[in-house]
Amino acid sequence: MNTRILKAEFDYFAPASIGEALALIAQNGPTARFIAGGTDLLVQMKLETVAPGCLISLMKISELSVLKREKGFLRIGAAVTWDRILAFGSEDRSYPALDDAVRCLGKVQVRRMGTIGGNLCTASPAADSAPALLVYDSRVRLVSARGRRTLLLDKYFLGVQQTARAADEIMTEIRIPAPRPDVGGAFQKLARVGADISKISCAVAVERKGRVCVSCRVAMGAVAPVPLMIRGVPEFLQEKTVTASLLVTAGRMISDEIRPITDVRSTAEYRKQVAGVLFRDVFQKAWTRAGGEP
């Protein structure tokens, strides 16, 4: 292992169209990999956990860098970098949970390089964008020689760095439905230091009417093999008047639902212990953003 260089040799292509990219992945056999910003894949190659014989860059394909509102969706091309999403968000403000996540998912340099599609393809359980996209009910669009398909993000993650995407499939874009009015969102994480991988993260999107929670979605990172949609709490909170004690109960339910492990960043016990308070903090922020008094 030598993190100063890329030891392995590989071919490199930067096709200009999806068709070309699909042809290249077909031609170059099973060791070919798509690459976007490279902030994760090149690290994995340096650490010798992967050794692609061919890299096919998706960064020159204009279709993958679309970023616009369309027919009830926000379309984010898979090769859109975080800083573009952040800039869009600071104008648009429809998806504050996503903006929160982008702001803390990496340092400025990584936001300039890393892409939303890359983050979702790497599929780390701690990926900060995932909980935020999950609570907005996002979908991912995939294309291969076999055709195009759309998957709910919730159905996309299968395990640690395992997804429903086939190796020869290109993620083209992420579609986020336009939020209903009165929805507030937020994301927060706990980490050792700034610009660090999450010990645990949480995103909430909540629709409120006065003091009542009409509906909410909650997702958490680094508490299971996949970025986790929380099931029990949204049902529990639905149509209830929000009180401090109600949120404490909801937080406890979350601690019970998650299945974290102990790893180099934290312990299972700690993750369970702080999941509830992290949820309450994030919920409060989302609730305030949804309008009205805290």
Binding site: R192, V193, G194, D196, I197, V264
Partner: peptide, 29 residues
């Protein structure tokens, strides 16, 4: 913050020798 832990089974650093999980304070702290 700072410490380096060893895995007693392998004798290797739990951070794997990378600073990814062994970083010092950043300007934010």
């Amino acid at each position: 913050l700072e410490d380096t832990d060893y895995d007693p089974r392998s004798g290797a650093l739990t951070c794997g020798g990378n600073i990814t999980d062994c970083k010092i304070f950043t300007a934010l702290e």
